[in-house]
Amino acid sequence: MDIALTLVVNPAFDISLENIENKVTDLLSLNEYRGRILSENRAMDLIFETKDHRRTREMLTPALTKIEGLDWALQAAKKRKKKLLLADMDSTIITVECIDELADFVGLKDKVSEITESAMRGELDFEEALKERVALLKGLTASQLDECYEDRIELMGGARTLIQTVKANGGYAALVSGGFTFFTEKVAERVGFDMTRANVLEIADDQLTGMVVPPICGAQTKLDTLNELAEKLELEQRDIIAVGDGANDIPMLEAAGLGVAYHAKPKTRAAARAAVTYNDLTALLYFQGYSDADFSN
C-alpha cells in the first residue's frame, strides 16, 4: 500500500524540510519514494510503499514529534482530498472561546475560563460545565453579544482558505460547535460553511436568562452530525476530515477518516490521527495533498 507522509514546518522555526526528509528516509531505510513540494520551504509529501502502516507510524512518531516547528500526517496516499469537513469553532476556526469573552462583560472571565479549560481537557462533564458557565452570564444584553462579536471574534489563520478550498473542490463544510448559534451563524457566513449546529442561548426581554435551550450540542451531537451527513452525502469514513481542540471533539475526530487535533489539549491530541501544533489551518490542506497553487480564497 502506498502511504503519504506530509511534513509541514512553521517558517518561524529554524528547521529544514530537506533535513527532515533525510531523517525519515534514513529511519525507514527508504530506497524508493516520491517527493512532492506542496509549498516551498514549508510543506511536502513523501509517498512510499509499506506493508505495515502501524509499524511505520510507530517508527516515525518518536522522531517527528520531538521536532519543534513540525506538523505531520501519515495516511493512505489515495483519495486524500476529503468530501466532507466538520470543524469545531472556538479555538479552532476562531481564536478565542466565546463564552470566556462573554464572561468578561460581567467580570467573571478568569472563573469561567478555568471551567472552560477543565472541560476542554476532559476533566469535567461538558454539559454540566456549559450550564454552570451560562448561568453566570445571566443578565447580559443582546447588544453586549453584538459588541463581543464585533470586538473580540477573530478568524484563525487559514480558516477561510481551508473552507473555500474544500468547497471549490466539491466538498461540504459543517461548523459543529459546543458554543452558541449567535456566533456560529455569523462565523459560518463569514467563512463559507454550508451548515452549522451549536447551542442556543435563551433570551428574554433582551437579556440572557442564564439558560441554554435544550438539547445541548456536545460531543454526541458532533458525532451524530458527522454520521448524518455521511449518510446523506453517501460518503465513506475515508471521505471525511474533522478538526477540533477539545475533549468534546474526540468522538468526531475518531469517526473521521482523518481527525486532526488543532492546537489541542493532550487528551484530544492523543486520540486524533494527526495534529497541528505549530501551523495554521492551511496545514489541513497540505495533509490532503493540496499545494499552494490549489488554494482558493
Rank of each mutant, 00 (worst) to 15 (best):
A261W: 10
S296I: 13
W72G: 00
E18C: 06
T277G: 04
L60R: 06
D100G: 06
S113I: 05
D292N: 14
M252P: 02
D249T: 07
L233P: 12
L137H: 12
D52I: 02
K66L: 13
L108H: 11
V96L: 12
A247C: 09
A188W: 01
E132R: 14
T165A: 04
F126K: 11
D151H: 13
I20G: 02
E114P: 02
T225L: 09
G257M: 07
S291Q: 12
N19Y: 09
V260W: 04
Y262G: 00
A247I: 03
A219L: 00
S143H: 09
C217N: 14
N31S: 13
E202M: 11
E21L: 13
Y290H: 08
A142K: 15
E132D: 14
T65P: 00
G171Q: 09
L17G: 01
G192N: 04
F180Q: 04
G178C: 12
R36A: 13
T95E: 15
I99A: 06
D52C: 03
E150H: 09
R54A: 14
P11H: 04
T268L: 08
A173N: 08
E185Y: 05
D205F: 09
N279A: 00
I203T: 07
E236F: 08
T225P: 05
V212A: 08
H53K: 15
I37H: 05
L28E: 03
V200M: 10
F287S: 05
D110I: 09
K138H: 11
T116I: 07
S29C: 12
R36F: 02
K222Y: 09
A77T: 09
A174L: 14
L30I: 07
I153T: 01
R42L: 04
A63H: 15
E185N: 14
E147I: 02
P11M: 01
L285R: 06
L102C: 07
L17S: 02
L258N: 01
K131Y: 12
L60D: 02
N227R: 15
S29V: 11
A129N: 11
N10K: 03
E97D: 10
A255M: 09
A12G: 08
I153N: 03
G289D: 12
D280I: 01
N248Y: 13
E128R: 13
K83E: 03
A256P: 08
A256I: 06
E18T: 14
R42N: 05
V200L: 11
H53V: 13
T282L: 01
K131S: 12
R121P: 03
L284K: 00
P62K: 04
D88I: 01
M156F: 03
N31T: 07
T221G: 04
I203F: 14
S16H: 11
A142P: 00
L155K: 01
G170M: 02
I163Q: 00
L70D: 02
D245P: 05
V24W: 01
R273C: 10
L130H: 08
K267T: 08
S177C: 09
I15T: 08
N41K: 15
C217E: 07
T141G: 07
F295E: 12
I216A: 07
L46Y: 01
K267C: 05
